[in-house]
Design a protein around this nucleic acid. Structure first.
Length: 550
RNA sequence: GAGCCGGUAGCCUAGUCUGGAUAGGGCAACAGCCUUCUAAGCUGUAGGUCGCGGGUUCAAAUCCCGUCCGGCUCGCCA
């Protein structure tokens, strides 16, 4: 499309930059607009409108361009709709992403064992999974990684409490119950601070691999992990190529800390081992606590190396909340100081946290909405909606559909919002399945699918009759650009917003254009086929299923 | 106090990187549309100091400076 316009300018001997071509805000200004007159007018110190008229006079239509009109300083190009739509549909059909040479690891779903999965994790998993899918489609060899924090103080506290104050075990939902134990442990220590030493002692025993403590650790670890695996599968992220755990890198992390101390990169300060990054404006990075215990951040240096060493990756992306921005700068800087050359290939993709109306969620205080709670409430609503709209649907089928809808609502809800925007969770909005929501997009895909089910033969495009048809084709055509940009910016929200825009355009089309049995059946079928295909790809990139019926 | 990030109608949000024509959507409100491929839909009405003040520019929600409000972070939590 743009090529034709460039050719027109070339033929007239006028230089035009890519950035001087844009899509006009309104169809009445044509299909493509050029702002070159502003630049030329500035140089020649003339009126931009006059310059535009002068330039336009030299231009000859060609290709899909059927008309050139001047509107003030803008030179507007109008396409022959039939020709342009045909070409756009052809190009859309052929859109291919070049195979990239880089192998990219996306680390997400970084959950702590002994704590429940909550709605904050859902934003993380939605984002990481979608990013992985986008990169994959764009031709990157993508390695999905999760890193589970299964060591540290929160685990020690829980084990301490279990060993000393809680002997009874429930029969089910052990993972969530562990979360409650953690809350109880935290409260108890808060009430009697002298007990903190006992918990610290458990951490020490963990580091020493004390058999009695490790037995409890192993047992409880499995409760959490079984729950995680089940949830990952349910969320549509069943396959992780790299399963990384803090306990695997813990000891090596400590060793690195000691090496850094020997090399003089780290130093002792107030009894702790730290890396002073003050001169880089990055504060102090604590590697080992003054009581000798290692931390989450101790292991992270080894983790970064392990990723490149064992998975042969070129780029390492960490999908972690923005509250850890400084922390990641510290890790990457320290890796650089260590002489680890791949430090420059480590990137933190940050996003803002999910909040409740009352404020920040806290697993320590127990003020959070768990995945289980969210699921129960949303499934109930989704199931009710499904039954109301599909009288007589079998229960098993309705439950499956309700799940697809609930997950679409959740995932789209998170993904449509830009990463840097904090997300204040609201039950009313979460339970909404109409308007700018995941289910709305699914619904449009289902309706398109139903038309295709009823067709006798495939469509072949020849002409557009109404504005809505042409508008839909134009939007479909943007698919490749949108996905490329989403990959480049690592921004799944671009795909989410685009999908919603497409669905809206299709719904308008659907209400105005009868397909089966109309005079324009073949052309319209071709458009519906293109829509069905494209919206399915978009939803897949967001990790959202397309149901058969709704 | 310093750094980072947000501030767009009653509420939520796109657009900000890469400046362009009347700032797109959605929810809530109001008025319409189901003998027609699924109304989780469509159409219309109403609702805006793009936080505020300067600057740059032919042109600013977008770039620069200042400022206010909110969030996060700033050594032994993760």
């Amino acid at each position: 499309m743009k090529e034709d316009i460039f050719k027109i300018f070339r033929d007239a001997g006028i230089a035009v930059k890519e950035s001087e071509l844009e899509s006009p805000p309104d169809p009445k200004f044509g299909d493509m607009s050029c702002t070159v007159a502003f630049e030329v007018a500035k140089k020649k110190k003339k009126n931009p409108a006059e310059v535009a008229a002068e330039i336009a006079a030299k231009l000859e239509v060609c290709g899909v361009v059927s008309q050139i009109k001047v509107a003030g300083p803008y030179i507007n190009f109008f396409f022959d709709r039939d020709k342009a739509a045909k070409k756009m549909l052809e190009l859309l059909d052929k859109v291919k992403f070049k195979k990239k040479k880089e192998k990219v690891m996306v680390e997400y779903a970084n959950i702590n064992t002994h704590k429940p999965i909550h709605i904050g994790h859902l934003r993380n998993i939605s984002l990481g999974e979608s990013l992985s899918r986008i990169l994959e489609l764009c031709g990157y060899n993508t390695v999905r990684a999760y890193y589970i924090n299964d060591y540290g103080m929160h685990v020690a506290k829980t084990i301490w409490y279990l060993m000393n104050h809680e002997t009874k075990r429930p029969k089910e939902n052990l993972a969530d119950w562990l979360g409650e134990i953690y809350v109880k442990a935290t409260r108890k220590i808060k009430d009697s601070p002298e007990l903190a030493k006992e918990a610290s002692r458990v951490l020490q025993l963990m580091e020493e691999r004390n058999p009695e403590v490790m037995k409890v650790w192993k047992e409880t670890w499995k409760w959490s992990m079984d729950d995680f695996w089940e949830t990952f599968a349910e969320l549509g992220s069943p396959k992780f190529d790299a399963k990384l755990y803090e306990h695997q890198v813990f000891d090596a992390g400590k060793k690195i800390s000691e090496e850094l101390l020997e090399k003089g990169i780290a130093k002792r300060s107030e009894g702790a081992i730290i890396v002073d990054l003050g001169k880089y404006g990055l504060g102090v990075y604590v590697l080992i606590k003054s009581d000798g215990a290692a931390l989450y951040q101790t292991a992270d240096l080894e983790l970064a190396k392990k990723k490149f060493r064992e998975y042969d990756i070129d780029i390492s992306i960490y999908v972690v909340a923005s509250e850890q921005k400084l922390y990641f700068k510290q890790i990457f800087k320290t890796l650089e100081l260590m002489g680890f050359k791949r430090a420059k290939d480590c990137h933190h993709l940050s996003y803002e946290l999910v909040y409740l109306k009352e404020g920040k969620m806290s697993s320590r205080e127990g003020t959070l909405i768990t995945y289980r709670q969210l699921k129960e409430k949303m499934m109930k609503k989704a199931f009710k909606e499904v039954m109301e709209r599909n009288k007589g649907m079998a229960k098993a089928r309705a439950l499956k559909l309700a799940k697809q809808i609930f997950l679409a609502a959740v995932k789209y809800g998170f993904l449509k919002v830009e990463n840097n925007k904090k997300f204040v969770f609201d039950w009313g909005k979460a339970l909404e399945f109409e308007g700018d929501t995941g289910p709305y997009i699914q619904y449009s895909a289902v309706r398109a699918g139903r038309i295709l089910e009823k067709r006798k033969k495939g469509g072949k495009f020849s002409s557009v009759e109404k504005d809505v048809e042409y508008d839909l084709v134009r939007k479909l055509y943007r698919f490749g650009d949108v996905v490329s940009k989403a990959a480049e910016k690592r921004a799944p929200n671009l795909v989410a917003n685009y999908a919603a825009e497409l669905a809206k355009a299709f719904s308008e089309f659907y209400s105005q254009c009868k397909v089966i049995g109309s005079d324009y059946e073949s052309s319209r079928l071709a458009i519906v086929e293109a829509y069905c295909n494209t919206i399915s790809k978009c939803l897949d990139l967001l990790g959202i299923d397309v149901p058969e019926r709704m």
